[in-house]
Design a protein around this nucleic acid. Structure first.
Length: 927
DNA sequence: GGCGGGCCTCTTTTT
DNA sequence: GAGGCCCGCC
């Protein structure tokens, strides 16, 4: 290798202190010289144990192949629960233990912080405590930050740049839109922020975005705005999430010496969840993984790029050169260009060994720009790649696996894997499907099931509730608080997004990085200092005139006579405070400094003087914030953590049920999993269908697959007949995904028998008793309870059967149930209609809001949603309650009473004997 | 400049 | 239903 002798490893500063041997491939030397090298230690352990090292034992042949095929490109297609993480971590351990590379020569990328943490700790278990020596294990974004901090000047930033979160970005864009004289209501800043994010996911800078996209926003000013946004970021010495990838990409392209440095450095690259990489991440990886054969080839390749976009050397707003972006978009079907092909064909010792692990069936981030294509074309990108399939599932029972496999088989365009398990299924429970009346009952029933399991000795930590959308979490939280059940919300309402935390962070950001105008603006008048809009726009103007950050402008302004005495004094004080705090940054421990700042700024006092109910909690949170800062070595690393991680790890020690979205559940597993909300419109989500059509549906199905495969032993699916969406009740029908489950592995676990009678909280005994109400001649207001007897004679039978209490439910499987049949029937009906067309497909577009209008107005109207000629969802609009306030009614359990209030189909009734109860109108009859 | 009430929009998923 | 924003009043 001309120029870069390969036997001169590039060491990180992290490793530098140790007396490292010159060649990592000589582990024995490391051991004898007493180096703290992880390889040395692992080798020692290995030698002690004789033949195959411990860490390899217990791997199946495919896993072992994936671990031991260290050289050349490797793609591991790992189905759910097939030991993917184990393979990744063992592979790293193997590379280290056999002295193939030093920890700092391994680049291991994950998507989430959780996954990174998990990998770190598992590698730690495998090879001892040398994990601090894996400086390049992290998320795409955290590694991006690390790269960018090292080379910030090449991107026109200082190394202390700030990372903006979505909220900051939105505010910034709002300012820009307003500065353009545009209406920020017509052109929502959030929408534009999402557009920019989308472009960045594709690796597009302002110059490269499609003309159509550019025109679509702000009267054709999309491109301008994007460019202005990038400019603004630069003056703020800040970047957004997308920049964390795009800046390094551009740096690599424009400074081949920098890229070569990393080519020399990283001998092994490992990528987790490869199916979720987006175009920008793909470009980033490819730059790092495909080392040109010679350095002149690097120059040639980069020169080519530069020729096409001359002058892009300066950190212009263009994030990547146009030519590069275009090429990537066009080359999907072509093999990579010669210069970029991995060198593997010639000299195995010089290649960079990339190993990607993924599962196309678990690709659930298409909406975020992920390109499943990346995994599908791996073999084209890396000729000669070894492809290894992991199909033996170690996680779930045969029933769960059978259900999941059957479901996912409905998708087209898969690489095709068949999961199998050796587990006998004799004693395992089938997948249970439950129906509930509404989300409250769903939460109540799930809570009771959890408590019942708990009584049987199951730990709450082994249970999880995985929801499609975060709003679903609330009913569970409410219920669990009520019954005193420990739970933990993962990725829920975030600690760092609370007002007081963001305010405090804003102070810290200004201290750490004086150019952070967004942070400055946030707190300049918090607590109130009498600095209103007038003063602030004056600061703005001065900042513009001086070309300086607002803080500096404020300091200047305070010394001038342009302001009235009051604001002038206030500004002077702020400026002096910040100057003082900034002076303390190197001498005071950062947690202490933070406390000082919050005290001296009057921020803590502000909440102390606040008489509102939340104030004490906010003070508590601030204390917690300061406590958590102590774990970080510097203010800057703390702020970086906050920007990237954005979730506070909460009381890990406690035994608690986990509640999280399906997206954040990926990679996790639990004994018992509850999957509520399997209703059309929610799951599959209407918006995914509207915006993604067929592929959107398939992504939803993959999401369902992810959910199902999280369960090891018990899996409970739920759907409700009524769900409150946007504050209004809506009838729902069961998700088509339920239909797609195989009968053999599924059973309906129903009603008031097994779990102590939650079946019908309003009526008392079961759904069946509720039917009594309908027999009085009412139309069934809900479309799809499988206990719905309307329109199906067998339904009445079934309902009676349930009432008789057959434990596991009245139906041997889901599909014989009347409600099911009715749902099917509804579909057929709706499919036969023509709902108008959109882009050639039959589409009836009904947002939730529109359906809502049917409440009370669209009496009895029935609409269907059709996409690609298939019925997608159907909503039976609610029939208004037939009762009126004051009506005298009879309830089977509570007896006679008067209606006190009506809320949708929920009645508040003052019963003569039972007192006031809330009851659904289906369960009472007029007297 | 501050504060309160009312109106409006938006609620899929995340680094 | 819920939070954010705007407007109008003090």
């Amino acid at each position: 290798m001309p120029g870069f002798p390969d036997d001169m490893p590039f060491f990180d500063e992290d490793d530098a202190p140790h007396g490292v041997p010159s060649r990592p491939a000589a582990p024995a030397a490391g051991a004898s010289s007493g180096g703290s090298g992880i390889a040395a230690r692992a080798m020692a352990a290995r030698q002690g144990s004789g033949s195959a090292p411990d860490y390899l034992s217990g791997l199946n042949p495919e896993q072992r192949l994936a671990v031991e095929t260290t050289e050349g490109p490797v793609l591991v297609l790992a189905g759910a629960g097939t030991g993917k993480t184990r393979v990744l971590t063992t592979r790293i351990a193997h590379i280290l233990a056999t002295g193939r590379a030093w920890p700092s020569q391994i680049l291991a990328v994950t998507f989430t912080n959780k996954a990174a943490r998990e990998m770190k700790s598992r590698i730690g278990h495998l090879v001892g405590e040398a994990i601090e020596g894996m400086p390049w294990l992290g998320t795409f974004h955290s590694i991006g930050v690390k790269l960018l901090r090292r080379h910030a000047e090449l991107a026109g930033l200082r190394s202390d740049f700030t990372i903006l979160d979505t909220d900051d970005v939105t505010r910034l864009i709002r300012q820009l839109i307003q500065a353009e004289g545009l209406d920020d209501k017509r052109w929502a800043p959030r929408t534009f922020a999402q557009m920019i994010d989308g472009w960045k996911n594709k690796g597009l800078g302002p110059a490269e975005i499609p003309e159509g996209d550019a025109r679509a926003f702000a009267n054709g000013k999309g491109r301008e705005l994007y460019a202005a946004y990038q400019e603004r970021l630069k003056t703020l010495n800040a970047c957004d999430f997308g920049d964390l990838l795009l800046h390094p990409i551009r740096i690599f392209r424009q400074h081949h010496d920098v890229l070569a440095e990393y080519h020399k450095k990283f001998k092994y690259i490992l990528v987790d969840e490869y199916q979720d990489t987006n175009t920008a991440q793909y470009m980033w990886l490819r730059l790092l993984a495909q080392r040109p054969k010679t350095s002149s080839a690097v120059q040639a390749a980069e020169g080519r790029a530069r020729d096409r976009a001359p002058g892009d050397f300066s950190p212009a707003p263009a994030a990547v050169t146009r030519s590069e972006a275009e090429r990537t978009n066009q080359e999907t079907a072509q093999p990579p260009q010669a210069a970029e092909r991995p060198a593997s064909e010639n000299k195995p010792t010089q290649q960079i060994n990339i190993c990607c692990v993924g599962d196309d069936d678990q690709s659930i981030y298409g909406w975020r720009g992920a390109e499943v294509d990346n995994i599908l074309r791996f073999e084209k990108d890396f000729p000669g790649a070894t492809v290894i399939r992991l199909e033996r599932n170690y996680r779930s029972t045969a029933h769960i696996l059978g259900a999941a496999s059957h479901l996912i088989a409905h998708n087209e365009g898969r690489l095709g894997k068949t999961l199998f398990t050796d587990r006998p299924d004799a004693d395992d429970a089938k997948v249970n499907v439950h129906a509930a009346w509404d989300s409250d009952e769903e939460a109540r029933a799930v809570g009771e099931e959890i408590e019942s399991l708990q009584r049987k000795g199951h730990a709450l930590n082994d249970m999880a509730i995985l929801v499609r959308a975060s709003f679903q979490m609330r009913s569970f939280e409410d219920r669990f608080i009520e019954i005193g059940l420990n739970y933990r919300v993962i990725g829920g309402p975030r600690f760092y997004e609370r007002q007081e935390i963001r305010d405090a962070l804003a102070y810290l950001r200004v201290v750490a990085q004086g150019a952070d105008d967004l942070a400055f603006e946030r707190i300049v008048n918090v607590p109130k200092r009498g600095l209103g809009e007038a003063t602030i726009s004056q600061i703005h103007a001065t900042a513009r005139a001086l070309g300086s950050p607002m803080l500096e402008a404020a300091a200047n302004l305070a010394e001038s006579d342009e302001l009235k005495p009051k604001p002038r004094a206030a500004l002077r004080e702020i400026a002096a405070n910040f100057a003082r705090w900034q002076g303390l940054i190197d001498t005071t421990p950062h947690a202490e400094l933070a406390e000082t700042i919050l005290e001296e700024s009057g921020y803590t006092d502000m909440w102390k003087n606040d008489r509102s109910a939340e104030a004490p909690g906010r003070l508590e949170n601030l204390k917690e914030l300061i406590r958590s800062m102590e774990e970080y070595e510097s203010l800057r690393s703390f702020l970086e953590h906050v920007a990237l991680v954005m979730d506070a790890e909460q009381n890990e020690g406690m035994d608690a049920v986990s509640i999280m979205t399906l997206h954040s559940a990926k990679g996790l597993e639990f004994e018992t999993v509850f999957l509520p909300g399997w209703e059309e419109g929610l799951f599959p989500h209407q918006r995914a269908l509207d915006e993604g059509g067929r592929s959107g549906l398939e992504e939803e199905r993959r999401l369902a697959y992810v959910g199902l495969t999280r369960a090891k032993k018990n899996l409970h699916l739920w759907f409700v007949s009524n769900r409150r969406i946007h504050g209004l009740w809506q009838s729902t029908i069961p998700s088509r995904f339920l239909d797609e489950l195989p009968e053999a592995h599924v059973e309906v676990a129903e009603g008031g028998n097994s779990y102590g009678g939650y079946g019908n909280p309003y009526g008392g005994s079961s759904f069946a008793s509720g039917r009594g109400g309908f027999s009085a001649g009412r139309q069934n207001p809900y479309g799809a309870s499988r206990f719905d007897s309307v329109g199906s004679p067998s339904g009445a039978r079934a309902a009676r059967g349930d009432q008789s209490g057959s434990g596991g439910g009245a139906f041997s499987n889901t599909y014989a149930t009347p409600g099911w049949q009715r749902a099917q029937q509804n579909r057929t009906e709706a499919t036969s209609r023509n709902w108008g067309t959109r882009s050639g497909h039959q589409v009836e577009r009904i947002g939730y809001g529109e359906v809502d209008s049917g409440y009370g107005a669209g009496r009895g109207s029935v609409k269907g949603r059709v996409i690609d000629g298939e019925l997608v969802a159907k909503s039976v609009a609610d029939t208004p309650s037939p009762f009126a306030v004051g009506d005298r009614v009879f309830h089977q359990k509570f007896g006679n009473g008067n209606i006190a209030a009506i809320e949708g189909n929920k009645l508040t009734i003052d019963f003569d004997r039972a007192g006031q109860k809330k009851v659904l109108d289906g369960f009472v009859t007029g007297v």
